[in-house]
């Protein structure tokens, strides 16, 4: 059974009086523990596709099953609970909470979303910070970290709750080439260790080569599928 099953997904945005189609009826499946890239130029629908999988947005039509849950029908609260329980997010701009240290940013989902006890939280946070090589920077705030370090913390935050799926929207766009590769390798390493499925979007052709499965989006259509390396 695939982790994600999408059938005839359409997504239209209303701009004034006109419906602008972002996704024009796409079908795809993503297996568990896959390392998937969604590739396409700006405005092709990559972020829309990630937002739908991540229960941040609803499709205009079609069915979307994530971990056997029809996410299109989830209420606002249920969607938040689903994201907190099963999903992790990595953003292009890292999106760390500036008033929290690296440790506290990683701790946030366990404390504020899942309500874990202090000792359990500490153990898990330190373990994941060590795994991403940031344990010695745990006390620093985001403004004291480099771009690569921030993204490592963001990856740790996404993985700390041991989610089934991590969605990363252009995770390397704001990083230099070497750092981008290191982050991708880190994500791959985490996938190998935890079995978490990674789906990331990129428009960088060099980065897409790192994926095991590649979806190419163009003008809202999934024109090619499954470029297995």
């Amino acid at each position: 059974m695939a982790l994600i099953q999408a059938t005839a997904i359409k997504k239209n945005y209303r701009v004034g009086e006109i419906d602008v189609p972002a996704l024009k009826g796409i079908d795809f499946e993503i297996e568990k523990s896959a390392f998937v890239a969604i590739v396409g130029p700006s405005g092709s629908g990559k972020s829309t596709m990630l937002n739908l999988i991540g229960c941040l947005d609803h499709p205009s039509s079609g069915t979307l099953l994530v971990n056997d849950t029809e996410v299109a029908r989830l209420s606002r609260n249920a969607a938040a609970a689903f994201r907190g329980e099963h999903l992790g997010f990595v953003f292009q701009d890292f999106n760390l909470v500036p008033v929290l240290t690296a440790y506290e940013n990683v701790e946030y989902p366990l404390l504020m979303v899942r309500g874990w006890a202090e000792s359990k939280r500490r153990e898990r946070v330190m373990k994941i910070l060590e795994a991403v090589g940031m344990a010695d920077q745990a006390h620093k705030r985001p403004d004291q970290l480099s771009g690569g370090q921030k993204q490592r913390v963001a990856v740790a935050r996404a993985l700390v709750g041991e989610p089934k799926l991590v969605l990363a929207d252009e995770p390397t766009a704001n990083l230099d080439h070497d750092t981008a590769y290191r982050i991708l390798n880190l994500m791959k390493q985490m996938r190998d260790e935890s079995g978490t499925t990674f789906v990331f979007s990129t428009h960088d052709p060099k980065i897409m080569g790192e994926a095991e499965v590649t979806f190419i989006l163009e003008d809202g259509l999934l024109s090619r599928q499954g470029a297995q390396q």
Binding site: G54, L56, F82, R83, G84, F89, P109, M112, V113
Partner: peptide, 11 residues
């Protein structure tokens, strides 16, 4: 938006 995305409930 980030807090909401990572699962923080509206309440």
């Amino acid at each position: 938006g980030t807090l909401a995305a990572i699962g923080t409930r509206p309440g």
